Simulated assay, not measured.
Amino acid sequence: MTWQIWQDIDEETRLARDAIQHTISTLMTLRKTYPILAEIRLEDDPLYQHTSSDHIHWLNQHSEPMSAENWADKERHFIALTLTSADLSSYFWIVFYSSDTPISVPFPAESDALEVAYQTPGFTIKDNTLQCAYRGVFVAKR
C-alpha cells in the first residue's frame, strides 16, 4: 500500500481504496480475535506435535469431504473448509468460489447457528443453504 498515491485522487478511486482498507482491517481484526485463523496447529505439522491439534476438513460444493476425484478436477470452482480449534472454542466454515455461475451449497452437517464473520458481495443464506451468486469468499463462525 505504500506505493499508492493517496492524495488528489478522484472519488471513485477514493471509494475503492476505502473499501480495500476496510476489508484489510476487518480481516486483520478477525485474525487477531481468533488465533486459529493466524496459525492452525495440525497433527502432521512437526512444529506442533507437542500440542493439541486443531481440526481441518476440506469440503466440496455438497459439503461432503473432498475426494481424490474432487482434488483432481481441473474445472473445480468451489472449495470450502471447516476449522475447529483443539479446545473447541472456535469453529469456522470458510468458502472460496471462483465462478460466476450461481450455486447453492448446503451448510456442513455440524454447522448449526452460524454467524457471518466476513463475506464478499454475492452470498446469501436461505434455509441453511449458502447461495453463491458469483465468485467470492464467505467466512462464518459458530
Score class of each variant (00 low, 15 high):
Asp100Met: 06
Val116Gln: 15
Phe78Tyr: 15
Leu81Ala: 13
Trp3Tyr: 06
Asp8Thr: 03
Gln119His: 09
Asp54Cys: 01
Asp44Cys: 11
Ile79Cys: 14
Leu81Gly: 01
Arg135Ala: 14
Glu39Cys: 12
Ser52Trp: 05
Ile79Pro: 00
Phe78Leu: 10
Gly136Asp: 06
Glu75Gly: 06
Leu114Gln: 12
Ile125Cys: 04
Phe107Met: 08
Gly122Cys: 12
Val137Asn: 10
Gln7Val: 14
Gln21Asp: 13
Leu37Lys: 03
Ile79Val: 15
Ser90Lys: 04
Trp3Cys: 08
Cys132Phe: 02
Val95Pro: 04
Thr51Ser: 05
Gln21His: 13
Tyr48Val: 03
Lys141Pro: 00
Ala117Cys: 11
Asp8Phe: 02
Arg31Met: 09
Asp10Ile: 08
Phe96Asn: 03
Thr2Arg: 11
Ile9His: 05
Asp112Cys: 08
Leu130Gly: 01
Lys74Ala: 15
His50Ala: 09
Met28Glu: 12
Asp112Ile: 08
Arg17Lys: 13
Tyr97Pro: 00
Gln4Asp: 08
Ala140Leu: 04
Ile9Trp: 02
Trp6Tyr: 07
Lys74Arg: 14
Ala140Asp: 03
Ala133Lys: 07
Leu27Ser: 07
Asp45Ser: 11
Met66Phe: 15
Lys74Pro: 05
Leu59Met: 10
Ala113Met: 11
Asp10Trp: 06
Val116Ala: 08
His55Arg: 14
Ile56Glu: 10
Pro121Leu: 08
Thr51Gln: 06
Thr2Phe: 07
Gln131Cys: 04
Met66Thr: 13
Thr33Leu: 06
Asp112Gly: 06
Ile40Phe: 00
Phe107Gly: 02
Trp6Gln: 07
Thr33Pro: 02
Ala38Phe: 01
Glu11Gln: 13
Phe96Gln: 04
Asp73His: 05
Lys74Met: 10
Ser53Tyr: 02
Arg142Val: 04
Val139Thr: 03
Thr101Lys: 12
Gln21Ser: 12
Lys32Leu: 09
Asp54Phe: 02
Phe78Cys: 04
Asp127Lys: 12
Thr33Gly: 00
Ser67Gln: 09
Cys132Ile: 03
His62Glu: 14
Ala140Thr: 08
Val116Phe: 04
Phe92Lys: 00
Ala113Asn: 15
Ser98Cys: 10
Gly136Met: 07
Ile56Thr: 01
Leu47Val: 11
Phe123Lys: 01
Thr2Ala: 10
Gln131Leu: 05
Thr26Arg: 08
His57Ser: 14
Pro121Asp: 13
Pro35Ala: 09
Asp18Cys: 14
Thr29Met: 05
Pro106Arg: 08
Gly122Val: 13
Thr29Cys: 00
Tyr97Asn: 02
Met28Val: 00
Ile5Tyr: 05
Ile20Val: 15
Trp93Val: 11
Trp6Ile: 09
Ser85Met: 01
Ile125Gly: 01
Ala86Met: 07
Arg41Ser: 05
Thr23Gln: 07
Pro108Glu: 10
Glu115Val: 15
Thr120Trp: 07
Glu115Ile: 10
His77Leu: 05
Pro102Asn: 07
Leu15Trp: 08
Pro121Ala: 08
Phe92His: 03
Ala113Arg: 14
Ser25Arg: 09
His22Tyr: 13
Asp100Cys: 07
Asn70Cys: 11
Gln131Lys: 04
Thr120Arg: 06
